[in-house]
Computed example of a mutant assay.
Amino acid sequence: MNTSFYEQVYEIARLIPKGRVTSYGAIAKSLGAAKSSRMVGHAMRYAGTAHPRVPAHRVVNSSGLLTGKFHFKPPELMEELLKEEGVEVKNDRVLNFKKVFWNPMEEIII
């Protein structure tokens, strides 16, 4: 199966449980492309057009910052969606980041 990198990213992102977040880098590492976190970010930019839906709001940077918020309309939507799932956010940063962090390398059984 020759699945595009973006689609592989979307498959991982769809597995992130509600109320949890992961990082661009963690997704990249789980795909065996540890130095491709920027490409994961680019994929998330276009996630709104993917089907089935991709919960792109659950993907943040490695320190819990909502760096992708400007790709949401309006930008505040990313934070609102996280808060609806019980993720605490303050000043565009996920609080208790380590507690709510979902590591695909530990959670996905291949």
Results as ranks from 00 to 15, higher is better:
T67D: 13
L77N: 11
G48M: 10
V40G: 15
S62M: 04
R38V: 12
P75V: 06
G86P: 04
K69F: 06
M78R: 08
P55C: 02
T67A: 14
V89T: 07
M44Y: 09
V87P: 07
F72G: 04
R58Y: 04
P52L: 00
R53S: 09
G48Q: 12
L77P: 04
R53Q: 12
V54C: 01
V54A: 01
H71L: 11
L81C: 03
A50Y: 05
H42W: 11
K83R: 02
L66C: 09
L82P: 05
K69Y: 15
P75R: 07
K83T: 08
A43I: 05
A47L: 03
F70E: 14
S37I: 14
R58H: 01
K69T: 06
V89R: 10
R53D: 06
E85L: 02
L82R: 05
V54R: 01
V60E: 07
G48R: 03
E88H: 10
G41H: 05
H57F: 03
A47Y: 09
V59R: 05
S63W: 13
V60G: 05
K83A: 03
G86W: 04
L66A: 02
L81W: 01
V40R: 06
K69Q: 09
T49F: 12
P75K: 07
P75E: 10
A56P: 11
F72Y: 04
E88F: 12
G64H: 01
F72V: 05
L82N: 03
V89W: 08
E85S: 05
K83N: 08
E79D: 09
G86F: 14
R58K: 06
G41Q: 05
E76T: 08
V40P: 00
L77V: 03
G48H: 10
S62F: 02
S62Q: 03
A50F: 11
V87D: 04
M39K: 14
R45K: 14
Y46M: 13
E85A: 05
G86H: 00
V40A: 10
K73C: 12
T49C: 15
G48N: 13
P74R: 07
L77W: 07
E85G: 01
A50H: 06
E80T: 05
P52M: 01
H42A: 13
Y46K: 14
S63K: 06
H51W: 14
K73D: 11
V87M: 06
V59W: 02
V60W: 04
H51F: 15
N61A: 01
E80F: 02
A43Y: 08
G41I: 03
L81G: 11
V87I: 09
A50K: 10
R38Q: 11
T49K: 10
S62W: 05
R38G: 11
L66K: 01
F72I: 06
A43K: 07
V54H: 00
A50L: 04
E76W: 01
G48I: 04
R58L: 00
Y46A: 14
M39F: 15
M78V: 07
